[in-house]
Design a protein around this nucleic acid. Structure first.
Lengths: 236, 236
DNA sequence: TGCGCAATTCTTGTCGACAAAGAATATGCA
DNA sequence: TGCATATTCTTTGTCGACAAGAATTGCGCA
């Protein structure tokens, strides 16, 4: 676990407000990619020496992460990566599906030319990840693709909720591909293309329908994973 | 602004983790009740001496509030109460309406006996506030009433978004009643009763419809306020 | 040997102080 | 007098240290 310090001596220069953001972004990604396992403890002091800064900026980053529900804090005791709640998946799926529908519809309604560029760029990245069979990249780029669609919808309230749901979904999917090393089907790429077409055409009804269908696809994917996991885990 | 210290000498005892929560709750309420005006600056040092604690817990409370979008932080410069965005109300109304619909419907679907108790208690508080023509209490209890309904729906993702929207709505309504000293109509009490009946009857379709209608009522209220405000404010 | 209590350790919460970045103010020159 | 620059001031960001709770260890006793 200990990193060699001999080569990493070049980190004395650091801009004033950058420490918090750096730690926040890094921890966040490590949590979402399951590099940090759910439930694993987080030690402020350890992080402080790892990043060569005091505990103050570390704590601020942790407070922010706690605000997003990515870590749980036991007062006066420990702080740890938030667990995935496998028991209450239905609310998650409900919310995810609704946000897929709403954001896609709003994107068809409010999109601007620059939005389409961004969406197409994300779709290209996703397609590349699928082609390369890079599961991690698929997960991240898929989330980015739908976040770009949500941005085009221009509703910050929906965007905020949707981002969180996509993040949570990243963790579930990461768990999936960590276990099975399967790959997202080409079907998703095609569905994405259809969604883009509806958004370009400003066809709100189709966009909403496609969003719903796409969401149900993903929900099915995750459910299939969970059933499989449960079957495998019952070993007495 | 300075408080007399002679009588407030009895504040040396404070439990370990309580400072942050105290400051957070208090600032939050002051912001939502417009005791702290949108755009007004927030001084850490001033708060520190006001609550007789160091800047550290103050800062943590501010970070949390910033995470909820209740305050804005200019890096290395100032931090201030978040402004109300009068220009982009449509997304707010869209989100609010959708959450009214969804949470009311889910409440009809998932409610338990204890939920009904809580909902009825809030409704009683709201009715009492209306009867007393206490505008501030109306605003708060109305939000609490709908939050209780959302709780009965048992979807933490929706609840979280809905809570934020209700908070933001509190600020708008507070602005309204601060200016006009009007009172929420008795009609709202009746509509609440109808909603409760639908939830009791597990009539999800009615619940959703009533939630939508109620939301549109409130949106109209706020819009009426804004038009009136604009007319009055044009004074050269 | 097993159990209850005290001491220790470990982690978090809080504090006071200092440094950096802007903003405001003062100074000097044309 | 007007403007550019230097200086001071204000506010935030970071640090190291200390204290309080909780968990763990060690000890004494039955």
């Amino acid at each position: 676990m200990k990193a060699t310090k001999t080569k990493v001596a070049a980190v004395p220069e650091r801009k004033r407000g950058s420490g918090v953001k750096f730690v926040y972004d890094l921890l966040r990604n490590e949590i979402l990619d399951l590099v940090l396992a759910p439930g694993s403890p987080i030690d402020e002091v350890q992080l402080a020496e790892r990043f060569q800064m005091s505990r103050t900026p570390i704590r601020e980053a942790l407070v922010r992460l706690a605000g997003e529900g990515l870590i749980d804090t036991l007062p006066n005791r420990s702080t740890m990566v938030a667990n995935l709640d496998f028991l209450n998946m239905a609310p998650f799926f409900d919310a995810l599906t609704l946000m897929y529908r709403v954001t896609t519809q709003l994107a068809a309604q409010n999109r601007r030319p620059e939005d389409l560029e961004a969406i197409r760029a994300r779709q290209a990245e996703f397609a590349a990840a699928v082609k390369a069979q890079d599961a991690l990249a698929m997960i991240a780029t898929n989330a980015a693709f739908h976040a770009a669609i949500a941005d085009a919808g221009r509703n910050p309230y929906f965007n905020n909720l949707f981002s969180r749901l996509l993040d949570e979904g990243r963790r579930f999917l990461r768990l999936y591909y960590q276990s099975y090393d399967d790959r997202l089907p080409q079907q998703f790429v095609d569905e994405h293309e259809t969604m883009i077409a509806a958004i370009v055409a400003r066809d709100t009804a189709s966009a909403e329908r496609l969003g719903k269908a796409h969401a149900e696809q993903i929900v099915q994917q995750i459910q299939k994973l969970m059933i499989g996991e449960e079957r495998l885990d019952i070993a007495l």
